[in-house]
Computed example of a mutant assay.
Amino acid sequence: MARKTVLITGASRGIGKAVAFKFAKKGYNVVINCLHSEDRLVQVKKELEAYQVSCLSCMGDMGDMDQCQALFEQVRKQFGTLDVLVNNAGISYIGLLQDMSTDAWDRIVRTNLTSVFNCCKLAIPGMVEKKQGKIINISSVWGISGASCEVAYSATKGGINAFTKALAKELAPSNIQVNAVACGAIDTEMNQFLEEDELIALIDEIPSGRLGKAEEVADLVYHLGYKNSYLTGQVIGLDGGWL
């Protein structure tokens, strides 16, 4: 059987890196992308290739359609169409909304939400042609409940949740499933700004009594990308019972 191909955005570290390794271990061709960390992305590529799979690494801003199209053209030339798309690229912003610049707002919307639109728009035609495909969007519990001092981040993740539900209905007749994973507090670099006392207080709020692991997110993403053609349009919480 021909190998399937997965694209993971924001794959140089954290959740995206863990997802890339999960699919590589399962024998997928892996396409990885990030915007800034080229050295890290090159290292991830080397480590993935140790699993005897093909790996294409591409730097670029997926919130920019021209750069996104360039990546998808490379994917088309090397692998053909995608089987699984994992929209993971994301940045955070901590601070009062009244202090946020319009540039910072535009940046987080482009990175977190416009990138999802761009990648889905370009991935869908090939999936529709094959009458199969999986799209998994990495969201957040803050997209469900909202977080003080993270209004822009919450708005983009809430947008992803609505996007997921709507696109799932649009693509279900073509046997393409679209789901999202609403992550809670995951032990990645994005949360390393927390002081020790803040981290302890956060963990005290989580019924499971710990942060989630990137590998646990990867396990769920792989399941969504591999099985169950009837599961679509869902925003699945992975938060240790937090919300």
Score class of each variant (00 low, 15 high):
T232F: 02
G27I: 10
V84E: 08
Q43I: 04
I15H: 07
S54I: 08
Q234K: 07
L7G: 09
M127R: 01
A180I: 06
Q78I: 04
E170M: 06
A24I: 08
G95P: 02
T232W: 00
T164C: 00
K165V: 11
T188P: 10
L199Q: 12
C55T: 10
L167W: 11
L224P: 12
E38H: 07
T114R: 09
D219S: 13
G233Y: 10
A168N: 04
Q132M: 10
W142S: 12
N88L: 12
N112K: 13
V19N: 04
S174T: 04
A166R: 02
M100W: 01
D83M: 00
Q78L: 10
A166S: 08
D66I: 12
Q132F: 12
K227F: 08
A11Y: 01
Q177W: 03
A168K: 09
K26W: 09
I200W: 02
G16C: 05
D197R: 12
Q43M: 15
Y230F: 15
C55A: 00
N175W: 10
I236Y: 10
P173I: 00
I32H: 12
E38W: 04
I32A: 13
F72Y: 02
A104R: 14
K131Y: 03
T164V: 04
L85Y: 08
A182M: 14
G10A: 09
V31A: 06
L231S: 10
N137G: 05
I160L: 14
G63C: 15
A180T: 07
N161G: 09
C183D: 06
S148F: 07
P173E: 13
A214D: 06
I206W: 07
I91V: 15
Y51T: 12
V31Q: 08
A152S: 10
L48D: 09
K4N: 10
I186S: 07
T114P: 07
A104Y: 08
V116I: 11
G60R: 10
D106S: 14
N191R: 14
A201M: 14
Y226G: 02
K46D: 13
A89N: 02
A201I: 08
S139N: 01
Y28N: 01
Y230P: 05
L220G: 14
T156M: 08
A172C: 09
S229A: 15
Q177P: 00
D66G: 13
S57Q: 14
E205L: 07
Q67C: 02
M127W: 04
T188G: 12
A70H: 02
N137F: 05
A89W: 12
G80T: 05
D106V: 06
